[in-house]
Every structure is written in C-alpha cells, then in structure tokens.
Simulated assay, not measured.
Amino acid sequence: MEDEQSFSDISGGRLSLQRRYYTQSCREFCLNCPRLSLRSLTAVTCTVWLVAYGLFALCENSMILSSAIFITLIGLLGYLHFVKIDQETLLIIDSLGIQMTSSYASGKESTTFIEMGKVKDIVINEAIYMQKVIYYLCILLKDPLEPQEISQVVPVFQTCFIDLQCWRFGLIMNNFTIL
C-alpha cells in the first residue's frame, strides 16, 4: 500500500511525504524536499559576479573575473554534492532495524543503519528555531550499560523543518504507529 500527501515546511516550501507499506513489519517513509531554487541560485551568482566586476573596474585585473567564475562553479558543485539533500528515506523493518538514507542533489547517497535492539523509542521532539517552534523526529537509543537510560538522540529527516500536521499524517494512520 502506498500513500502520498503534500505539505509545506516552515519556510513555505513544498514537501511530499510518501508512505509505503511492504508488509505489516516493513514500512518506508520518504520525504522529498524542495528542489534548488533558481531564484536563490541566480541571486548568489549575480552578487558574486557583480562584486567581481566592481573589483575588476577598480583594479583592471582580469584574474578577478576568472576567479569569480571559478569560485561560483566550485561553490555550486560543493553545495550540490555535500549540502543540498533532495530526498530522505526512513525504512523500518521491525525485527531488523531502521535504515536512514539521504539522497543529495548530485546523486550521492548517505545511509545509516540502526539495529532495532538499540532503539529505545521514536519521538516527535520540538525546538525553538528562529522565533518558530519546529518539530522533528528523533530516535532514542538505549545506553548499552544502563538499558533504561538514553545514550544518544538521532534526528531523522534533518534537512526539512516540518510542521506537526505532516508528522501526524506520516506516523499515525488508523491507530498504527511507526513502531
């Protein structure tokens, strides 16, 4: 069974949350983040090039223009490969564990696996960010020495700040929770 719904993040960007149920013990939550904004990309590029052109007019050195183009291209490639995440996926297999995958705009993927025996609970946490209350999903890991204590908090879906309505849609359906 597959279910999809669109939401907006706290900045107004469009998000798409897909839920896929393969079996009763295996389900996947996929969050598609907003694509790279052409407006912001153009603004940054124009700003860098206008500053470079102003420096060129003062110094009359063509190396300034060449370095501005080079810096812009290297910065864009670095941003696409290391920062801009297009899709985050949470795959939960009850008897095995939780796999978190982040797909970057350049095509690179980063995967983290957490064994189910290490998971104490999954909670929706709230924080204050830039004068707003944001909600984020966290996996609480058991302390190996003290099983009743929490050793680590692992945030899930780290790139998009989602409103509470999206979390409720994604995690609870007909009294069916994530764990």
Rank of each mutant, 00 (worst) to 15 (best):
Q24G: 10
T47R: 09
Q24E: 13
Y21G: 14
L38I: 14
C33G: 02
P34M: 08
S16R: 11
S16Y: 04
E28R: 04
S37H: 12
T47P: 03
Q18R: 06
L41Y: 00
C26A: 12
F29Q: 03
V44N: 08
L50Y: 02
E28V: 00
S16Q: 07
L17T: 01
C33I: 11
R35C: 15
E28S: 08
V51L: 00
T45P: 04
L31E: 02
L38P: 04
Q24M: 15
R20V: 09
Q18E: 12
R39S: 14
V48M: 08
N32H: 10
T47G: 07
T23Q: 12
V51P: 06
W49A: 13
L38N: 11
V51D: 04
A52F: 01
L17P: 00
W49S: 08
R27D: 06
V44Y: 10
V44C: 03
S37N: 12
N32P: 05
R35T: 15
L38S: 15
R19P: 12
L41G: 14
W49N: 10
S40M: 08
R19F: 04
R20H: 11
C33S: 09
P34Q: 04
V51F: 07
C33H: 05
C26T: 11
T42F: 13
T23D: 13
S16E: 01
E28T: 02
L31M: 05
L31I: 00
S37F: 09
A52G: 02
V48T: 01
T23E: 14
V44G: 05
E28F: 13
C33Y: 08
N32V: 13
L31K: 00
S16P: 00
V44M: 11
R35P: 10
T42V: 14
S25R: 12
C33P: 07
T23W: 06
L41C: 12
R27E: 13
R27K: 05
L31T: 03
V48I: 04
E28A: 14
A43R: 05
C33L: 14
V48P: 02
L31C: 04
L36W: 03
S37M: 06
S37D: 04
R39W: 10
S40H: 03
L41F: 07
L38H: 14
T47A: 14
T47Q: 05
T42W: 08
R20S: 13
L50S: 01
C46M: 15
L41K: 07
F29S: 10
L41P: 03
L50I: 09
A43G: 04
C46T: 02
R35D: 06
C26L: 12
L17W: 02
A43K: 09
S40A: 03
R20I: 14
C46W: 00
S25P: 01
L36C: 07
N32I: 13
A43V: 06
R27Y: 08
P34I: 03
S40K: 03
R27P: 15
Q24F: 09
C26P: 15
T47I: 12
S37L: 13
Q18G: 15
L38W: 11
S25M: 08
R19V: 05
L17N: 02
T23I: 07
T42H: 10
A43S: 01
S40V: 05
T45Y: 02
R39E: 13
Y22A: 10
Q18P: 06
L17C: 11
Q18N: 12
Y22F: 15
T47N: 11
R19C: 01
C33M: 11
L50T: 10
T42S: 10
F29T: 02
L36Q: 14
C46E: 02
L31D: 00
Y22P: 11
R35G: 11
A43W: 02
